[in-house]
Amino acid sequence: MGTVTADVRSGRGVAVVTIAAPETRNALSTELLTSLADVIDGLDRDPAVHAIVLTGGPKLFAAGADVKQLREMSPVEYAASGRAACWQRLGAVATPLVAAVAGFALGGGCELALAADLVVTADTAVFGQPEVKLGLVPGAGGTQRWARAAGRFAAAGVVLTGRTVDAFEARDLGLVHRIVPAERLVEAAVAVAASIAANGPLAVRAARSAVRRAEELPLAAALEYERQQLLLMLGSDDHVEGINALLEKRAPHFTGS
């Protein structure tokens, strides 16, 4: 099965979640996916955690679903397995998520990375949706998030051929925020997450929600949603503290209220 562990970096507001199933190259079995959703759900409710880093370690992110498990599943069994519910739970997380990707992020592993808010990669990272080579299609956002991030034609070039994309091409396509050497991957992702966590927590969640609405709403509706988030923040104590700190030339002390 493998394990999913969480390490909360005290004082930084960051939690590092690590997938460790080396015997299956971090394949996302139903059991492992459930454990991942449980761990991230718990961190999402932790008031001390303001950003989450998700990694498979310095050599591998996740090489897709557990194909041996999928081979034995009928459509009814798949629907009853809870996998879709796990993906929905991961998609409902409000805490900003930074994916730290080294090595292979294929199939479900690629979809997991694309579900994050920012992707930091090692120079060894390889992305892809090889499902068509197995007579399958991506089922956890691969077709939709690739198209939204890179455009329909670039998405078709990956999804329909099953080809892989290295870290540098992924950056050119707009998927990757930063590329670092593999040995610095988690450290670099934590630094990015800490820079998010240092900001007003209410504002970060509101801004994150507004950015995500850009994928779902027409422009006029998305702009109205953004305006509503601004009005909510104008009613917060944090916005007063942030402005006072700027005027007084000091670091802000946000309380999340």
Rank of each mutant, 00 (worst) to 15 (best):
P201G: 00
Y225T: 05
T255E: 12
R148I: 03
A149R: 04
V192C: 05
T124L: 14
D237S: 08
L70F: 06
L97E: 09
V98C: 07
A105V: 00
A194H: 01
N244P: 06
A100G: 04
T55E: 11
A115Q: 11
E23D: 14
A6H: 08
A167P: 08
A197Q: 01
A62R: 01
A102F: 03
A48L: 11
G109L: 02
G107T: 07
S81G: 09
L32M: 07
L90P: 06
T18A: 14
P130Y: 08
V120P: 03
A15F: 00
L43T: 00
V17E: 07
T55V: 08
H50K: 05
M73I: 02
A27I: 01
N26L: 15
P218R: 13
E215A: 07
V119N: 06
D46E: 12
P181I: 01
T255D: 10
G64E: 09
P130W: 13
V53F: 11
A94I: 07
F127Y: 13
R9L: 15
M233N: 05
A84D: 11
R163Q: 14
G141D: 13
D238E: 12
A125P: 09
E216Q: 15
G103P: 06
E248G: 02
S209A: 15
V240Y: 10
V17Y: 03
L70A: 03
V8M: 08
G162C: 13
L219T: 05
Q88Y: 13
A84F: 14
